[in-house]
């Protein structure tokens, strides 16, 4: 299985996302794209606001899992392209930490594929998040779904 690059140090910039879109302009079988962007929330917990999340991952296992997820998604949905990016390291509230980008001939497949990918990555990929508050204290993030 070919392992695509997934992890990006720090926030995923709007320029990176724009470039990813631009790179697909030469692929003329594509009729539509769908994008999901995960953004760090400044959640208020016990009267303190989350200032940033510091992400770590069990990278070897995460890349294996994502390769398997990609293979399954390509079999399930009629997609032309699929790109998955996730931040490692510190990402400030308001910045983008997760970027799922799927392209297909027709729009129908794109919504279902995006939802599938976002949900399964949250559930199956060993990525961990330390929520850092404005006073530098922290707690560990847990996905609720």
């Amino acid at each position: 299985m070919k392992k695509q690059s997934v992890f990006i140090e720090g926030a995923i910039s709007p320029e990176f996302i724009a470039n990813a879109i631009a790179k697909h302009q030469s692929k003329h079988t594509i009729g539509g794209h769908n994008i999901f962007l995960g953004q760090v929330r400044a959640d208020e917990i016990d009267h303190k606001n989350v200032a940033a999340i510091e992400f770590t991952a069990y990278e070897d296992m995460a890349l294996e899992q994502i390769a398997a997820i990609r293979e399954k998604a390509f079999k399930t949905f009629d997609l032309t392209c699929m790109h998955i990016y996730h931040s490692l390291g510190k990402v400030q509230a308001g910045d983008i930490c997760f970027f799922v980008f799927v392209s297909a001939k027709h729009s129908k497949e794109l919504y279902a594929a995006t939802e599938y990918l976002v949900n399964i990555i949250k559930k199956k990929v060993p990525i961990f998040g330390k929520e850092i508050f404005e006073d530098s204290s922290h707690q560990w993030k847990t996905n609720t779904n």
């Binding site: 995960g38 992400f55 991952a57 069990y58 296992m61 996730h86 930490c97 997760f98 976002v118 990555i121 949250k122 559930k123 199956k124 990929v125 060993p126 990525i127 961990f128 998040g129 560990w140 993030k141 847990t142 996905n143």
Partner: peptide
């Protein structure tokens, strides 16, 4: 052997 806490990607 890896000890993994709850996942928090996304």
């Amino acid at each position: 052997i890896a000890f993994l806490p709850p996942f928090a990607g996304g």
